[in-house]
Design a protein around this nucleic acid. Structure first.
Lengths: 1294, 379
DNA sequence: GAGGTAACTATTGATATAAGTAATAGACAATCC
DNA sequence: AGATTGTCTACCGACAATATCAATAGTTACTCC
């Protein structure tokens, strides 16, 4: 008899042993502190019932064993925080207090205190309130909620008010301090510098004569700087990160300053950073290279900092900008080190500016263009669309102001419920007014100007995103994107505001770079404060509403000039047309709301200068990204970034947060930081070539040309055979599709090129985060090294490394690789380059006028980049002295299979994917093709006609995709479709036979792959099997929610595992709960992310094997990254392709091999099983067994009995409940109860009597559904392959 | 050479994956045919070809055949399990050239062109357009899931004068699900009024000939509107339609028959209804525009036209109001007659800024995917 | 003033929409007696 | 509760149908005891 409750300390110890393996730290996240079955409370139905109720009131995760808190992911609490925060910031204190009242009692008192403090803080900060009213609030609120006990933070807020708003500051402070003495320690109060601000703390210290060394240590430094400076106060140059005046709310101000034009503000401001940089450069450069220096002195556009400098300058000529790269390159190495450091300081202010002022600069850019256009009257042709955007923006802003007035009116009237909204029935409906009640507070968080700019920018961006056809985007997507962008911007604003609170009144008195650096660092530290850092994200439906309000305003005002024929007079007239309009389209009978750009706009977006239309958090960074220190801290400085892309799955977020809190992810962070710290620059030579081609507007390589009007085939007469019309329609659809794909690709390329242009000569960095499996991606979406060949070609390392002999060889190998000549030995690949020296020179020197050999490469742009480097190297006397900046790639050959082979210890598989040393790379695709060919020839000889058709056409190409996707669990049907696509153009197979042939071929390819990677498949199957069990299992410690389907429980557990680096991974696949939300434009259908729905079992199963493997390859990458970081290599990665300087390839190769070995030295599969055993301990697995088997018959009997007891038919919930009772008795402390439990019969106890219940499992026909204790299958036996062998395998990564 | 009732269907289990509702009440079929007075239009059947899609076991088909005695009766039945009822050995006179079973799927357009190209029949365009085409009669059982789609498409052909309608006003007798019938028959103002109904109204006279009067199920929109039933039973069109219990339409003894073939009404889609659709032969002007206009307008079927003009295109609000009568502007599309839509179409057609592409090419499946960053590198 | 009800509104749930589908096989979820 | 019908078919980066109407739930207003 099998007992489940093997929860003994011994087992636990055994498990925890696995927490560390090899020399890798491996904290498994779960930590069982209690026996799970006792966690629901005492036995017996009453106790259980109560427990159940408590459980149902908030979310529960997949398992009780991991101790991951759920409370923060409670939907109503999330909603409360977000609206509460919005109301406070918007100054709607009545409503906020009302919300607070409703919050009271529904949460813990700690949580309530947090809310109250937030209330106090915002109340204090509001200019509306004087000290008296603030004091009153501090008295009345605790009266209203007697259990509310103020904490030091609360007093800090009051102290701040006292210090700032008293007439006699010092006395007031002293009085305050003595007043609170008996309630709280003053040091505890002062601890809250993030609330008080530095100036205030110092005031208090001074006033009360306190000892500053008793304060929070991390603040000592900054306080010391200040103390020092205070003595000799001189004028500070530190520019306040003030919102530009024109971005402030208030129409008088706005119209005024807009009219007079801000050109002046664009003129050069000689900022501090500028000066330092110039100074340094003068020092550095004077003795070195006068030409560079001159250029710099004359540098026209550098004088504007940050965002303006990046965006406003059109870097069309070399003289338009300062080429930091050239400067740095031409310096000696010591000088360079110094320069680089100064540049970092300089850039840190620019970065700040980009992130905080980008909206402003975009707007400025529009305005400039608009005025340029106005100045050039007569010239009708104006490039770009910026002047139009400016007009839209100008007209939209007053509309927003109008709307905000209504919101203000609502706030003034102290409306606290939706019901009491007043509205004018003439102008709007009750529902619209009600909506305003919801979104109003959020809308006031940003200035009208910002809102308008965001709306426009988002829509432009969306247009280039995938799936958008020529100027068409889905309303739902657009509305959410705008809402999200508003939220993002608000968060950035908050960060700035928090920073300002701390540093308010603090002046830097000395202009040393060190001091400024300290200051900058301090600011990074204080940017987040205790109260605001946890602010809940806005509810999706709110984002939708906000987005729709803004978009509908834009729709209203955005016009585009058009020419049309007057219907009456037949004359050509100039008019305007809406630039965007809202309509609907049908997709398979479903209505879809879309926004369409006017054709003219759409065309401009795909071809013209887009400078000034990119959101800052979509750009690479000028300085090293903020290192990741927690799940939501790192990446960009001003906009909030998250370390994982969580697909809005609350469970993922909860696990991530918990792991981050427990410090389990530090290595992961470290790896990501290495990736982020790699400095890049734009490859200007490539950029020039690209631009030359791009400007023709013609298609080149993969880039489509500017699409003229779509030319559709002529419509056949209506009365032709419907089949003909259908074909025509299909053709049209295909053309439109292609067109829309071309369009978005062109837009996307446009963005990439604009970014590249903006960053010409700059040093740039890519902040990285991960997908939920741990694979790393750059945060900036458009231009990055993960992108297309073009993107990759445009990028190179900022630092150069002398290649040396080995590096020179790697450079040549890289050429062969990008030409697709990567199946040969290294020597042959090297020869490939040597044999093409002429071509290389030709390509490098005359990329567009020569033979264009580079264009024949697989990756032409990267090929051209290599050609350029190689030609430079070749032309040197000693090529090994060449300083290279090109990333050299080392790619894992079929990386997924490499991991599988290592997991299974599969010698044959390991050999196939180059885990075993060999003089020549193994090419698995060819190998599979060979096997297939052999099988088919055999069939052919046995007279198989299908075999005859295909036997001479089995190439690597035909099987490649299928072999590749096999790792992802491609099904027969899917694989057949792939193969059909490959063979459909073979002329001798008629279209009618394609299907049969493809099926036949697929069978054989599958068989071949299986035979080659037998062990891999065993593991794949095992992983799938486990996932299936988990996603078909139920917990019994809680009452499962009533299933929609009576005779099947809802399965609520997803597959969760921990990577060897400690990253918890939660598969997010669940049913979504979707809702229709009405907005201004239309209703949108959106998912509610905070509803934890049953898992999508099928998806859980099919995705787990690839996800697990990917989590391993991600781990491998991060481990390698960490090591490379330690060795100071420039390191970049595209999942299973690792990049570094040519000179460092050998080092990197040894690092990545070591990492792989370290990763696989441990039996990962067994470890995974242990983790699963632990995590899903005590679960019941829902299976079907043979109805006629003995256990089935006994269970049927038992159910009859049980049914009689209940007086109703037995549901699955009843059965689980029964089993729960039995188990709680079994684990009771009372022997009598345990005895009772032992003798109790449940359908599960019946199952437990059979040792090998699997024998009764049945999939077909006569079945019976029962629960069996969840028991994972034994892991497949591991083969003999020794992973250490791969250390000497040259082609493992190559 | 008449076609007898097939072998005893009550004892033969038919396994089929095509979930059709098959009328199994032979007497009812004959009655319906009499009611339609078909003999009047097709005479002795000497020049008549019946094209019969999805005849299933052929009950309805045999009744038609017996009553009309066509010179050709082409059965288009892809369902293998039905073939045994339709082959010569089962009631159909052996060697009969008149009754021809074609095993192709009428879903494919090709099936029909092949009928002609293979010489199974030689259609000629009709001369006298004032009458129903006397040479061709199309009948089908469209009660399966794709049936409604076929209805819609054939109706579309009627607009286009393509397919069989290139030969003139070819009548269609269709067994459809009640839910389909409800959509097609709904008049202005009724809840089920739909684009589909407008299309029907525009180019045909359409009448239900057999309906189920099982009013207990008549709550959903999927069922015929009560007022529709009344109209055809006791109201203005009384006597034009047989109204019977649904178990009289299919077979009363369903226990003996495999459920998949002869399922009676399911609450969702209702019982089968026989529709007679007589094309009027009308040419709808500005077809492209008309299609676009009704498709777009029915998005906001309940809103007054005035408020939903924008679905017709950007700037529609400037063009239409002054050119349409006020009372029309106040009507919601669901309350409009065909003529109203015609009026709107007229104005729309003259609109210089009307959308250029009226067809709906939106297609998600194949969009994008070209700019895939790490595209599959095939070589 | 309590209780009850009518009248009304907000919220929730169900359903139609469009109109070539295309072949195959096998597992799994949903649905309907 | 069990057979039948319907859906889906490769991982991740990168999710997304909507208008309308009936029914229900929730409120307010009003009447009556």
């Amino acid at each position: 008899m099998l007992r489940i409750s093997c929860n003994s300390p011994a087992v636990r110890r055994a498990v925890s042993k696995y927490a560390f393996f090899g020399n890798l730290k491996n904290p498994i996240i779960l930590e069982v502190t209690k026996r799970w079955y006792s966690s629901t409370g005492s036995a017996g139905s009453i106790g259980t019932a109560r427990a159940v109720k408590a459980v149902e009131s908030h979310t529960t995760w997949s398992t009780p064993h991991d101790n991951v808190p759920t409370s923060l992911f409670n939907k109503s609490s999330m909603h409360f925080w977000s609206i509460f925060d919005a109301c406070l910031v918007a100054g709607q204190f009545e409503r906020a207090q009302n919300l607070l009242k409703g919050f009271h009692g529904t949460v813990s008192i700690d949580e309530f205190l947090k809310a109250s403090n937030l209330f106090f803080q915002k109340f204090e900060e509001s200019s509306k309130h004087d000290l008296e009213s603030i004091r009153r609030k501090f008295l009345t609120l605790p009266q209203e909620f007697p259990d509310l006990k103020l904490n030091p933070l609360s007093y800090a807020i009051l102290l701040k008010a006292t210090a700032q708003k008293s007439e006699f500051k010092n006395e007031a402070i002293r009085k305050f301090v003595s007043d609170i003495e008996d309630k709280v320690a003053i040091n505890d109060v002062l601890y809250n510098i993030d609330i008080l601000g530095i100036a205030c703390v110092k005031d208090v210290i001074k006033a009360c004569n306190l000892d500053p060394s008793a304060l929070r240590t991390e603040y000592q430094e900054i306080l010391n700087i200040e103390t020092e400076i205070d003595a000799k106060v001189i004028e500070s140059e530190f520019k306040e990160q003030e919102t530009p005046e024109t971005m402030k709310l208030g129409e008088e101000l706005q119209t005024e300053s807009l009219k007079k034009g801000d050109i002046a503000s664009l003129e050069s401001v000689d900022t501090f950073g500028m000066k330092t940089l110039r100074h340094t450069l003068i020092g550095l450069v004077a003795q070195q290279n006068p030409i560079v220096f001159d250029k710099f002195i004359q540098g026209k556009k550098l004088d504007k900092e940050g965002a303006d400098a990046i965006f406003i300058s059109d870097k069309h000529n070399d003289d338009d900008y300062v080429d930091f790269f050239q400067i740095s390159k031409n310096l000696s190495s010591e000088q360079r080190a110094e320069f680089d450091q100064v540049l970092e300081t300089f850039n840190s202010e620019r970065q700040n500016s980009i992130e905080s002022r980008a909206l402003y600069s975009a707007r400025q850019k529009w305005k400039n263009d608009f005025e340029k256009m106005k100045a050039a009257t007569g010239k009708i042709k104006v490039d770009g669309i910026n002047h139009l955007l400016w007009e839209w923006h100008e007209q939209m802003t007053p509309l927003i102001v109008e709307e905000l007035k209504k919101v203000q009116a609502m706030s003034d009237a102290n409306v606290t419920t939706k019901k009491s909204m007043v509205y004018d029935p003439e102008l709007e409906t009750r529902a619209q007014a009600g909506d305003r009640f919801d979104y109003g507070p959020y809308l006031t968080l940003l200035t009208p100007e910002k809102l308008s700019v965001i709306t426009i920018l988002e829509l432009l961006k969306l247009n280039s995103s995938n799936g958008a056809s020529e100027g068409v985007m889905r309303t739902a997507k657009a509305v959410l994107a705008v809402g999200k962008a508003v939220e993002m911007e608000y968060r950035s604003d908050q960060i700035l505001k928090d920073e300002k609170r701390v540093f308010n009144g603090v002046k830097l008195t000395k202009n040393s770079p060190e001091l400024r650096k300290m200051m900058t660092n301090a600011k990074f530290t204080f940017r987040e404060n205790e109260l605001t850092k946890q602010s809940a994200s806005w509810p999706t439906e709110m984002k939708a509403k906000i987005g729709s309000v803004l978009i509908s305003m834009l729709l209203h005002v955005a016009k585009v000039p058009v020419k049309g024929i007057d219907p009456e007079t037949q004359e050509e007239v100039q008019g305007t047309s809406p630039a965007i309009y809202h309509t609907y389209q049908y997709l398979a009978g479903s209505r879809i709301g879309v926004l369409k750009f006017h054709k003219i706009i759409a065309k401009k977006l795909s071809s013209e200068n887009m400078t000034g239309s990119i959101q800052p958090h979509h750009l690479p960074m000028l300085i090293k990204p903020k290192p990741w220190t927690s799940w939501n801290n790192g990446g960009y400085y001003m906009s909030k970034s998250y370390v994982m892309r969580t697909k809005e799955s609350p469970e993922q977020q909860a696990y991530l947060k918990e792991a981050s809190k427990r410090g389990a992810m530090n290595e992961v962070f470290e790896g990501l930081n290495v990736l982020g710290n790699t400095s890049w620059t734009i490859n200007k030579d490539i950029f020039k070539v690209v631009m030359q081609l791009w400007n023709t507007g013609k298609p080149f390589l993969d880039i489509p040309g500017i699409s003229d009007d779509v030319e559709l085939p002529t419509e056949p007469a209506r009365n032709v055979d419907p089949a003909i019309r259908r074909d025509w329609l299909r053709e049209c659809r295909a053309i439109v599709n292609r067109n829309q794909a071309d369009h978005s690709q062109r837009c996307d390329t446009n963005y990439k090129l604009e970014i590249a242009r903006a960053f010409l000569g700059e040093r740039l960095y890519f902040p990285h985060n991960m997908d939920f499996r741990g694979r790393a991606y750059p945060l900036s979406p458009h231009l990055n090294h993960l992108g297309s060949d073009l993107s990759r070609g445009l990028l190179m390392f900022w630092n150069g490394r002398e290649v040396g002999a080995r590096g020179f060889r790697w450079l040549k190998i890289q050429l062969a690789n990008v030409f697709g000549f990567d199946k040969a030995s290294f020597n042959d690949r090297e020869k490939f380059a040597d044999n093409h020296i002429k071509d290389i020179y030709d390509s490098a020197e005359k990329p567009l006028d020569g033979q264009k050999w580079w264009m024949t490469a697989d990756d032409p742009w990267q090929a051209l980049a290599v050609c350029m480097e190689l030609s430079k190297a070749y032309s040197m006397d000693d090529p090994t002295k060449f300083v290279s900046r090109l990333p050299i790639h080392q790619d894992g050959t079929c990386n997924g299979l490499q991991h599988y082979a290592a997991l299974g210890g599969d010698i044959e598989g390991a050999n196939q994917v180059n885990l075993i040393p060999s003089d020549k790379p193994q090419d698995i695709y060819s190998e599979v093709a060979n096997i297939v060919r052999a099988r088919i020839n055999n069939d052919f000889e046995n007279g198989n006609e299908t075999a005859a058709l295909i036997k001479d056409h089995i190439s690597r190409k035909v099987v490649k995709q299928t072999v590749m996707t096999n790792v992802y669990g491609v099904t027969f049907i899917g694989a057949r479709a792939q193969i059909a696509k490959q063979i459909k153009d073979l002329p001798h197979i008629g279209p009618e036979n394609i299907f049969i042939v493809a099926s036949y071929l697929t069978i054989n390819v599958f068989a071949a792959v299986r035979s080659l990677f037998h062990a891999a498949h065993l593991i794949q199957d095992w992983l799938g099997e486990c996932a299936k069990m988990i996603s078909k299992a139920v917990r019994i410690d809680i009452t499962n929610r009533v299933a929609k389907n009576g005779n099947r429980p809802d399965f609520m557990s997803s597959v969760i595992w921990t990577t060897p680096l400690g990253l918890p991974i939660v598969q997010p696949y669940r049913d979504f709960l979707k809702k229709q939300i009405s907005t201004n434009l239309q209703t949108v259908y959106i998912t509610d992310p905070y509803a934890l729905e049953p898992v999508k079992s099928r998806k859980q199963v099919s995705a787990f094997p690839p996800n697990y493997i990917h989590s391993l390859d991600a781990t491998h990458m991060l481990m390698s990254a960490i090591e490379c970081g330690k060795k100071n290599l420039s390191f970049a990665a595209v999942h299973d392709s690792y990049w570094t300087h040519a000179a460092d390839v050998d080092d990197m190769n040894s690092i990545l091999r070591d990492a792989f070995i370290r990763l696989h030295e441990v039996d990962l599969v067994t470890k995974l099983k242990t983790e699963f055993d632990r995590r899903y301990e005590g679960f019941l697995h829902f299976v079907t067994i043979d109805k006629n088997s003995e256990p089935a018959k006994r269970i049927i009997e038992h159910r009859k009995l049980h049914s009689k007891q209940l007086g109703k038919s037995v549901s699955v919930a009843d059965e689980i409940e029964e089993e729960r009772r039995r188990r709680s008795m079994l684990n009771s402390s009372k022997p009598s109860e345990r005895k009772l439990g032992d003798s109790m019969v449940t359908s599960v106890s019946i199952i437990e009597e059979y040792d090998n219940i699997e024998q009764f499992y049945l999939k077909k026909k006569i079945q019976k559904s029962v629960f069996v204790p969840l028991k994972f299958p034994e892991v497949p036996p591991k083969g003999e392959f020794d992973v250490h062998l791969l250390r000497d395998s040259p082609y493992f990564f190559s | 050479m008449s076609w007898k009732l097939p072998v005893d269907i009550a004892t033969t289990a038919v396994k089929s994956r095509l979930s059709r509702l098959n009328p199994t009440n032979y007497e009812l079929c004959e009655k319906a045919i009499d009611l339609m007075n078909l003999q009047n239009d097709y005479g002795d059947g000497r020049d008549l070809t019946i094209i019969d899609a999805y005849p299933s076991m052929g009950i309805w088909s045999s009744a038609l055949n017996r009553k009309l005695n066509p010179s050709k009766h082409i059965l288009l039945e892809p369902g293998r399990s039905y073939h045994k009822f339709l082959e010569s050995k089962s009631g159909i006179p052996a060697g009969s050239e008149a009754i021809k079973l074609v095993r192709d799927d009428p879903f494919r357009w090709g099936t029909f062109t092949e009928l002609v190209s293979q010489g199974l029949y030689q259609p000629t365009a009709q001369n006298d357009m004032s009458k129903i085409n006397p040479n061709i009669l199309f009948t089908a059982n469209f009660t399966h899931p794709q049936g409604e789609q076929l209805c819609a498409q054939y109706l579309n052909c009627m607009w286009n004068h393509s397919w069989l309608f290139q030969y003139g006003r070819v009548r269609m007798l269709l067994w459809v699900r009640e839910s389909t019938a409800a959509k097609m028959l709904a008049r202005p103002g009724e809840r089920a009024r739909s684009r589909f109904a407008v299309q029907c109204d525009a180019v045909s006279r359409i009448k239900p000939r057999v309906i189920s009067n099982n009013t207990s199920l008549k709550t959903s929109i999927a069922n015929l509107n009560l007022s529709t039933i009344e109209r055809f039973t006791t109201g203005e069109d009384a006597g034009q339609c047989l109204s019977v219990e649904d178990n009289l339409i299919v077979h009363s003894e369903k226990k003996k028959i495999s459920t998949s073939t002869v399922t009676a009404s399911s609450s969702k889609t209702g019982s089968p209804v026989l529709l007679q659709i007589d094309p009027t032969g009308i040419n709808v002007p500005h077809l492209d525009c008309f299609e676009f206009v009704i498709r777009q307008l029915f998005i906001f079927r309940g809103k007054p036209l005035r408020d939903s003009l924008l679905v017709l295109g950007a700037g529609a609000g400037d063009w239409f109001p002054s050119r349409l009568p006020a009372d029309l502007l106040d009507k919601p599309p669901k309350d409009m007659e065909v003529s109203h839509f015609m009026t709107i179409t007229e104005v729309f057609a003259k609109w210089p800024f009307k959308p250029e592409i009226l067809h709906d090419f939106y297609d998600e499946q194949e969009a994008g995917m070209t700019a895939a960053p790490y595209s599959v590198n095939i070589n």
